[in-house]
Design a protein around this nucleic acid. Structure first.
Lengths: 350, 350
DNA sequence: CTGAAAGCGCTAACAT
DNA sequence: ATGTTAGCGCTTTCAG
C-alpha cells in the first residue's frame, strides 16, 4: 500500500538500515548516500509508519493528559501548552477525561492505558495518597494539581496552602470580616488533600478572625453551577458573608452570578476571589480577582518530567515541584469599579 | 517484557489464534476454552499491544479532531462528546490545535498526520473550498463548522445562514434598528464561506432596514479580545448600534465587556446576541442570548461518519448534513432583568 | 560507512 | 473449533 522504507531503499539502491539511518540519524551516513536517499524520500513522499516503529521500539509515542473535564478552561489552557510541549519532544498528547470519577481515576492509575500511551499525567480529584502509594503499575506517572502530594512520583503544583492564605489575606486587607470558603469535594475525604481549605483556615486564624464553620461550604464538583448553589446557601444565613474565597474561578463565577441575582453588589456587598486566573474571569462583569498559577510552567514541567521518565532518565528528587503564582487584583475585590482597560495590579508571591 | 498473546497461549495451553479470538471475538470459541483463556488473561493481566495490532491491521485506532483552539469553550464542549463517541466506537481521539494557521490547516489536509491517525475531523477557518477540492490525500476527512461546505466530503454544521437570519429577526422584533455584526475573518476571503454574514444581511434586508457597512466589523480571530476591540470601534461611531449580532459567544462576551466599560446598559442601550450557547454565556452578567447548535449531535455525527469512512462503509450523500439549532433567549436581549433561575425561553428553529 | 537479518506482537489466510 | 504460519514496517544487533 503506502510508501515504506523498502520502497525508498530500492529506489535509492541502498539497504533498509541506511534509509533508517538517514531518517533517524542514529549512525552517520555519507553525504552522497544521504542525498540520494533523501531525494527518494521526497519523490515518493515517505512518512514513517509509526505503528511499526513503536512496535519495534516498545513505545507508542503517545502520552495521556487525564483531567476531570475538558470544559474547565483552566485545563483547556493547560492542555494547550502541554500539547505543544509534547510535540516539541516528539510525542503526541491525548486527552483523557476522568469526569472526576474515582473508578476511572483508579483504572488509569492501574495502567488501563498501558499499551496505548507511554506515560500519564494525571490530575486526581477523587483518589488520594493511599491509592497512589498502593499503585503497582510501572507506567510513568506525573501528578498535577492539589489532589495528591507527598508521594514518590513527580508532582507539579502551586503551593496551594500559601496561595489560599494569600487570597484570604487580600480579603482581610480589604476590611472583610465574614469570609466564606466555597470548596470542592463533599465526599469521603480520606487522605485526599484539602490544601486550599487548610490555607483558608490559616489565613482566617492569622487575621485573628473567629472560625465560623457555617461559612465553609463544600461542593460535589467544580463548576459554575456548584458555585451558584453554594452562594445561594450562604445567602440564607442570618449573617451572610462579606467576602468569598472560591476553590477555583468557575465556582467564583457561579457565586458572583448568584450574588447578582440576589441583588447584591460586588465587591461592595460581597467581594469575590478565585484561583486559576482563566480568561473568562478577566471579561466577567465585574472582572474577577484571582490567584494566577503559572499554567504554562506547570504544563511544561509535567510533560518534561514525564518524558524524562519514559526515556529512562533517572528521577531526581524533589518529587514535589512548586510552580510560582501571582495574584491578579480586579474589580471583584477592588474598591472602585474602574474601567477594565486600566493596568491590572499584580503582586508577585511565588 | 510485558504479557503477550504468547504468554497467555502457553499458560492456557492453546494457540495464539485462539487467544486472539477470545480477545476479539472474530471466530467462535468453545466455552471451556474461552474460560481457561480468560482466566489466564486475568491472572497475568494481559492487555493487547496496540502498536502490533495496528501494524497488522494497517490502522492506528486514532482519529484527530483539529480545531482552531482548545481554549474556545465551544470546541471544548464539542470535544467532550467526540471523545466519548470515539471511545464507544473503539477509537482514541487526539486533539490537534491548528491555531487558525493556514499552513497548519493545509498540512493537515495534505496528510501530515497520515501515519498517526486513521482519519481527521477538521474545523477549517483559514482554508477554503478550493484547497479542499485540490486535496489529493486519501486520509478520511470530515469537515465541521461554517468554514467550508459544498465539497465532496462529509460536512456537519448548522444552517448558518438561517441561524444568523433568525438572530437578526430576534433583534428586529425587539425594535432594534441599528444592528451591527461583529464577525471573524478580516483576511483574504477567497471562497471561504461567509455564511453568517450572508444570513445577517438577509435578515437586515428582510426587515427593510438600510444596509450600513459601517455597522459590520470584521475581526482577525474569534476571541473575547476581538469582540471587545470591535465593540470599542463601533462605539466611536456618531450613531452607535442599538444591537449587536456576534459571530460567536466569545466575541459577544467581549463586546458586552466593552459596552459595560463604556457605561452602556445591556440590553437597554445595546442588545447582544451570539452563536454557540456556551455555558459561560449562561452565567455572564447579563446572561447572553445565543443561537444554540446541537453540539452533541455535531460531534457524534462527525465521529460516526468518519469511522464509517475509515472502516470502508460507502459514503452516501448528502455530504452536507445540517444539525438542528434553537435560540436561547436570555437577559442580553430581554426586556426585564429577571432572575437567572427563571425558565429560559427557547424557540425551536432547526 | 553500509548491509543482512532477526524479531517486536499481532491478525488472518490457510490448514486440520 | 482450533492450530500453524506469514508478514505488517520498522529498529538494531552483528558482520563486513
Amino acid at each position: 500500500m503506502g510508501v515504506s522504507l523498502r520502497s525508498i531503499a530500492e529506489r535509492a539502491g541502498v539497504s533498509l538500515a541506511t534509509v533508517s539511518n538517514v531518517v533517524n540519524g542514529y549512525r552517520p551516513v555519507a553525504e552522497p548516500t544521504r542525498r540520494r536517499v533523501q531525494q527518494a524520500i521526497d519523490e515518493l513522499g515517505y512518512t514513517p509508519n509509526l505503528s511499526a516503529r513503536h512496535l519495534r521500539r516498545g513505545r507508542t509515542g503517545l502520552i495521556a493528559l487525564a483531567i476531570p473535564e475538558l470544559t474547565n478552561p483552566y485545563f483547556a489552557e493547560l492542555a494547550e501548552t502541554a500539547i505543544r510541549e509534547a510535540a516539541a519532544l516528539g510525542y503526541t498528547l491525548v486527552m483523557e477525561s476522568t469526569d472526576a470519577d474515582p473508578d476511572t481515576e483508579l483504572a488509569l492509575l492501574g495502567g488501563s492505558r498501558r499499551h496505548v500511551v507511554d506515560g500519564l499525567i494525571l490530575s486526581p480529584v477523587r483518589i488520594g495518597r493511599a491509592e497512589v502509594l498502593a499503585r503497582r503499575d510501572a507506567l510513568p506517572l506525573v501528578l498535577i494539581g492539589e489532589g495528591v502530594s507527598d508521594v514518590p512520583h513527580d508532582h507539579i503544583a502551586i503551593d496551594n496552602v500559601a496561595a489560599s492564605h494569600a487570597a484570604v489575606a487580600h480579603l482581610v486587607a480589604l476590611g472583610r470580616r465574614r469570609i466564606a470558603f466555597i470548596g470542592a469535594r463533599g465526599h469521603d475525604d480520606r487522605q485526599s488533600a484539602q490544601l486550599r481549605l487548610r490555607g483558608f483556615r490559616a489565613g482566617i486564624a492569622a487575621a485573628g478572625l473567629p472560625d465560623r464553620p457555617e461559612l465553609t461550604v463544600v461542593t460535589d464538583r467544580f463548576g459554575r453551577a456548584d458555585g451558584s448553589a453554594a452562594m445561594r446557601r450562604l445567602l440564607t444565613l442570618t449573617e451572610p458573608p462579606d467576602a468569598v474565597f472560591a476553590y477555583n474561578d468557575l465556582i467564583a463565577l457561579g457565586a458572583m452570578r448568584a450574588a447578582a441575582d440576589a441583588g447584591l453588589r460586588i465587591p461592595q456587598d460581597v467581594a469575590v476571589i478565585g484561583i486559576d486566573d482563566i480568561e473568562e474571569g478577566r471579561y466577567a462583569n465585574p472582572s474577577l480577582t484571582s490567584i494566577s498559577p503559572d499554567k504554562a510552567a506547570i504544563a511544561r514541567l509535567a510533560v518534561r518530567r514525564l518524558v524524562d521518565r519514559i526515556e529512562g532518565r533517572p528521577p531526581r528528587p524533589p518529587y514535589d515541584v512548586q510552580t510560582p503564582f501571582t495574584m491578579a487584583v480586579r474589580q471583584s475585590t477592588a474598591g472602585a469599579r474602574s474601567g477594565f482597560r486600566g493596568p491590572t495590579q499584580v503582586e508577585h508571591l511565588g
